[in-house]
Amino acid sequence: MIKFKVALWHNGELAAFFKALFSQRAIPQLQQQLAQQYQRQVLLLNSARAGIRIALRYAATQQPQRQLVLYPEYICTSVPQAIADAGFTGMAVAVNHELNMCPQALSALLERQPLAVILPHMYGAAAAISDIETMCRHHQVLLIDDAAQVAGIEADGRLLGTFGDFGVISFAQAKTIVSGVQGSGGVLLYPAALNIDVPLKPTSGWSRLWPLWHFWASYQHDGIANSIDYYLQRLSQLLRKKLGRTVATSYADGYAIAAPDAAVALKQFETLPSRVKYLQQQATIAAEALAGLEQLQFPQLQAGRYLTRLIVRSPKVAPAKLAKTCLELGIKTKTTYGNSSQSFDGSMTSGLLELPWQGLQPAELTTLLNQLRLLDQRLVSS
């Protein structure tokens, strides 16, 4: 069975985590490294969504009459939730065939004089960031370069996260740099000319042990640990609801990254070049092997492209049935954002499923591609 891996962790990451329980040195080390790499001011936070809220509130001090924030219609719910939590009105913008914000659709909405545009790069595929940056400047609209999924990745000769007015990076699961889940760290990037004064409370490293368990049990392993974690998380949610804590502390405003998460992030940055190169080579192999399929589509797949996930669509078969057939062939799948794993209706955000991608061994990749070709043949003949 080909399964999902949301992070490529080794003993070094675990050792760094536990060592940082007794030291804060990883935080200034990560701060210095990112400042040198991105040539921006760096604010190390508990999450990327906290960075989005800070950026939006700053924008409101510059243009208080504006309240509208634009974001792509295909996106993690944490982004529109961050907009609402910051006190602004969000509006979704249509996406293109690569699941990124469509510049043409955005152009029409910029006439409404929004406060800001949040532009992510879906699953590692860079959006039309240069064009959208020019459009936003013309309309005096703040641009947040949401590089949550693409830490250390470049487009148009620049690091993603350095376009526009602000950049954000996430260290949560299934990203480029993964230090864990549930508030495992995020970064706000901004030019030195901006005066951003946000007092941050420290986050105890020991408080990160519970999220580490969740990350290990739910995302890195199957079996009994996964089942135990499921019920523990449900119990935790019920307790939070009963106590009136609707927002988990790990995502609350005003908290810095914890030292263990910073230490893991540093370790992940060390291996980033080799991981990116491996996934680019993997994309080349997959693009060649899957070219010419008649019933299966891979919206973002291109030779040599860095991708954090692999998305598939069949206009002929509903995602639920496709997922069942993939499972019969030994391939696990996942549903995608929102309602996008419902039956294909002709829109860009329908009929989608996620396939295993990160952490595949060469033999697993070969099996995956062979089974996808077999599946396509079945769909053609059915």
Rank of each mutant, 00 (worst) to 15 (best):
A248S: 15
T249E: 10
Y251L: 15
Y251Q: 06
A252M: 08
A252N: 06
A258W: 00
A259R: 02
A259N: 03
A259K: 02
D261W: 01
D261Y: 02
A263D: 01
A265Y: 12
L266A: 12
K267M: 07
F269P: 02
V276L: 10
V276A: 10
L279G: 04
Q281W: 11
A283W: 01
T284I: 03
E288N: 14
A289T: 04
A289N: 04
A289P: 00
A289V: 00
A291P: 04
G292L: 02
L293V: 14
L293R: 07
E294I: 06
E294S: 12
E294H: 14
F298I: 06
P299D: 06
P299V: 05
Q300N: 13
Q300S: 10
Q300W: 05
L301I: 08
Q302P: 01
A303D: 10
G304M: 05
G304F: 03
R305S: 09
R305K: 13
L310A: 04
I311M: 13
I311T: 12
R313W: 05
R313L: 06
S314K: 06
P315T: 12
P315G: 10
K316E: 12
K316H: 14
V317T: 15
V317F: 03
A318K: 10
A318W: 01
P319V: 08
K324C: 02
T325S: 04
T325D: 04
T325G: 00
C326W: 00
C326D: 02
C326G: 01
L327S: 09
E328Y: 01
G330C: 10
G330E: 10
T333F: 04
T333M: 11
T333I: 08
K334W: 08
T335I: 13
T336H: 11
T336G: 05
Y337N: 12
S341C: 07
S343P: 08
F344G: 12
G346L: 12
G346Y: 09
S347R: 15
S347L: 12
M348Y: 15
T349G: 00
S350R: 11
S350W: 09
